[in-house]
Amino acid sequence: MSDRRAELESAPWGGRTRRYDLIKEGVVAVVIVAIVVAALSTLFGSPDEKQVTFKEWATAAPADFYATSVQELAGSSGTGGYGAPYNKASDGVNLGPLYLAKLLGVTHPVDTVNDFVITPLTTVSNAAPVADALKTWQASDAKTQSTWATNYDNALTKVNQDQAKVPAGNYGPVPELAAGLLTMAQAGSLDGALLSQGNYFQTDNTKQTLFLGDGSYFNDKSTASNLQGSTWGMMNETGRYPGQAWLWLYSFWYQIPPFNNGDSHPFGANADAWIMVIMGALSLGLIIMPLIPIVNKLPYKIKIHRLVWKNYYQEENL
């Protein structure tokens, strides 16, 4: 683009003008949009599907809750093996040689054994078997605790989470602890205990959310509402409301190979990181679009602008 052209196009307009009331335009716009928005709000309201509580989970799917509690004790849950920023259990995802989460460290420590199970149990008065189980657990060393929990976790998995079918074994107090947590959750006292961790003020729901996500109940509920990332869930909303449609491009990458296969290395298994990079690059591309060759010539080649300025082009014989 010549400097002369840029100069002409940036100079104050010297040609014909028309009356134009910007303030009136703005006021009318606010009024019209407000009316339309108020009408849609009156007709359709807004989405507000009730939050899932631990009480709901433990009541509706006790076996799932029980098994998840055991996984938290054994460290075999999703959170237990997550890695940074919650713990050091794994290296987390990578961008080639870059392990960014690991590099930035454990900034939000989550100890699934104590934060999810033991500490909440100590905040209530428990029935005798649970109180005894807690004492036994707390009196043992970490290695023994881990052996008990892992044994029971494996045994429970083998019988498809059917607690009644678990054969006798070296489980220590783990079954009683899980049962105690289930009772606590069903009574509705786990929700607050998980959040507060023995404190008063607390606004960080990380521990609750991670625990909730480790079980199947929460995930199944989201699948039923079509909210899973693998089915464009990022764009969707509960009920029939419009979702974050503007996230379509972000959501798109999760639907196509190699990103839709979590087992394929290196891209599928690290899809979260790669898609973040792709979207970062594309966002930057949008911001500097006028500098991108070919793309910045499209408006000259595909003359949609002639429709915008059709009156002007007619009047000026362009």
Binding site: F44, G45, S46, S225, N226, M235, N236, R240, Y241, P242
Partner: peptide, 30 residues
């Protein structure tokens, strides 16, 4: 509460074409 609150909170209907999927509501928006 919206007048069509009940209708809006029913399970959404999705258009499914291979790997492509969109809810009727999002389609209307687009």
């Amino acid at each position: 509460m919206g007048i069509f609150d009940h209708f809006m909170n029913l399970r959404a209907v999705y258009i499914h074409l291979g790997w492509f999927q969109i809810s009727i509501t999002n389609l209307i928006v687009v």
